[in-house]
Design a protein around this nucleic acid. Structure first.
Lengths: 211, 211
DNA sequence: TTGTGTGAATCCCTTCACAGCG
DNA sequence: CGCTGTGAAGGGATTCACACAA
């Protein structure tokens, strides 16, 4: 039970869970670290090491019980509980996220949508009404919001993050291409679409130059 | 001039570039590794080490010329050239990406949109018409597409990736939550929204359990 | 004096190799 | 046997510390 788990380990756990759910759907009963590795794009040793941080879940000579391991991973990843989410920013990215079916399936429930555009406030998305972002401080405690998704322009992102944390939010998923300053006790995950594309063009540029 | 540059280094270069562009807009002339570090969320030593992989761009005692360094980074990241992009999947995520202003600003030009939904084919997004995904093999060579953005469901993603690579695409930005199998010469960048959220709920679950 | 560029030291993650259990 | 769990080894990436140039 080590204290610190690296980010890459957590990401791999997510991959393993997805692979296990596929196997479950396919009716598989048990699975070896080798099989999980090939599905998850890693090595058998890595799979076993990843699990070893949390306990021992396999049977020597027989691998892992698909169903039990999936359940264990869901617990580790915090997918047993329902996470209450507020979406700030009802633009195109916000819209795409709000309807993303995988979110609800994994236990993330978006119970509030906020924006600062008077044209959008009052609009209806499904059965939910877009509220003014000025209500952030009421919404977060009232609805017991755990996570906030920031899908606003860079110029507004830091202010929203600060206010959300102040109001009691426990984690932030940030789509604005900027680094947010929040207390270290509040985890922030950044999704920066520009950086992902730049990583690609960097790779292509180099490969061309070195070939 | 080392051969292999790590992914994290590339990501940091993107951050530095963004910081430099801010400084440029603010009229700053030169900048120290210290200043860049605090804006980029890293350390001064890291900044200097990152640059040292590519050459030496600073003046001892005076830091870096903002404008010249920004230009150098743009070249390194391949932002001098225009990258031609095809978007496959005209759902909500595709729509959000297509209108994402930062893409065009960075030299990524989306010249084709493809989908398999008969209702969508023929629709107009701005001045562009959605084409059938069956035309993928014509579009990629005809329009000299460099990159393809995959924004389709998991069930279709691998097939699209394979066909796109076969047709001559050089890089893939994948939004489907699955690991694509492509030749190792074709760089793939994955954006997996579910994993990002799961990383958050993992962090929150642990912190609660250990506090 | 200031702040870069860089070998050396350190830390962390991955891989190896095998003991041990079913 | 087969395959897990894990200490030890190996490799990369970050950090340190300082010589050196402006």
């Amino acid at each position: 039970m080590s204290r610190t788990i690296s980010d890459s380990t957590v990401r791999r756990l997510s991959h393993y869970l997805r692979a296990l759910e596929d196997l479950e759907a396919g009716g598989a009963d048990s699975v070896s670290s080798d099989q999980l590795a090939s599905r998850g794009g890693t090595t058998a040793a890595q799979v076993r090491k990843d699990f070893s941080h949390f306990g021992s879940f396999g049977k020597r000579g027989h691998g892992y019980q698909v169903c039990a391991l999936a359940s264990t991973l869901r617990t580790l990843l915090g997918l047993d509980s329902v996470w209450r989410v507020a979406l700030v920013g009802a633009g195109r990215i916000g819209a795409a996220l709000y309807r993303y079916p995988a979110f609800k399936a994994r236990g993330y429930e978006c119970t509030a949508i906020l924006d600062n555009d008077p044209e959008k406030i009052g609009q209806r998305w499904g059965d939910r009404v877009i509220q003014s972002v000025t209500e952030l401080e009421q919404v977060i405690p009232d609805q017991a919001i755990d996570l906030v998704i920031i899908a606003v322009p860079v110029s507004a992102a830091q202010e929203i993050a600060g206010r959300a944390v102040q109001a009691g939010v426990r984690g932030v998923l940030n789509f604005a291409p900027t680094r947010l300053r929040v207390p270290s006790s509040v985890p922030v995950t950044n999704v920066n679409l520009v950086i992902e594309l730049e990583a690609l063009s960097f790779a292509l540029t180099r490969e061309g130059g070195e070939a």
